[in-house]
């Protein structure tokens, strides 16, 4: 599987879809911020107690984290190795270059790098609080979110990353379907439609939070 370009791309597709599934849940959860601190903080606490009493406190969360880290590592490693190969396969450029592929397709690599860096910042900001602006309080996610999006750079980093995410999903979801052999001529328009819808909904849903803080809907 890993030795073949086709297999490596399939690993990228599956890991990408795992992350996409998580993002849908993450985005829906984020929207709870619009229903006040009590509901949002309770949701934050619930994430740690899912599966109890079968699961111990935070066990489910840690399983999700491990799966996500594995998906990120697999996705990024495959992307790096395939990209190196792709660049080596086309050593000489055309003097008369012409670009036909869409913006989303052409920005997959750098968009992915931006998203990777964002995830690091995002975790240091709102999970561990290392780069958090204004006194990170564990267990008070509502206040932490408001603090983060009260800084101009917090908003810029987040919104730029979410636009990159939208572009990445726009090409990525459709491409994953092709890579896994699930596409086809009859399904092409539907798949592109779902990819665009997912990209739009996720970007809009995530961007709604900083916009909410900026407009004082969330404070």
């Amino acid at each position: 599987m890993w030795d073949s370009t086709v297999g490596k791309k399939a690993v990228m597709a599956v890991s990408g879809l795992i992350m996409l599934l998580y993002l849908v849940a993450h985005m829906i959860g984020n929207l709870k911020v619009f229903f006040g601190p009590q509901e949002f903080n309770a949701y934050g606490h619930w994430i740690r107690t899912v599966g109890e009493p079968f699961m111990h406190y935070t066990w489910t969360l840690w399983i999700i984290r491990v799966v996500l880290v594995a998906a990120v590592v697999a996705h990024a490693t495959a992307a790096y190795q395939l990209s190196r190969r792709d660049i080596a396969a086309r050593p000489a450029k055309y003097v008369h270059a012409r670009r036909r592929a869409s913006y989303a397709t052409r920005t997959m690599r750098w968009g992915g790098v931006i998203l990777g860096l964002f995830v690091v910042w995002h975790i240091l900001d709102l999970t561990t609080g290392h780069v958090h602006a204004g006194g990170f309080q564990e267990g008070h996610p509502y206040q932490n979110v408001v603090d983060s999006f009260s800084t101009w750079y917090g908003n810029v980093i987040y919104i730029v990353a979410m636009l990159a995410l939208g572009l990445h999903i726009r090409h990525g979801f459709w491409a994953a379907a092709q890579t896994l052999g699930a596409g086809g001529r009859s399904r092409d328009r539907a798949l592109k439609g779902v990819a665009n819808l997912l990209a739009l909904l996720l970007t809009a849903g995530f961007v709604a939070v900083p916009v909410g803080v900026m407009t004082q809907v969330v404070s």
């Binding site: 370009t5 086709v6 490596k8 791309k9 395939l82 190969r85 792709d86 660049i87 080596a88 396969a89 086309r90 036909r100 592929a101 397709t105 052409r106 997959m108 090409h171 459709w174 491409a175 092709q178 890579t179």
Partner: peptide
């Protein structure tokens, strides 16, 4: 030594 597919569609 061919590259991989990124579904650029070119």
């Amino acid at each position: 030594g061919f590259g991989g597919c990124t579904l650029a569609g070119e």
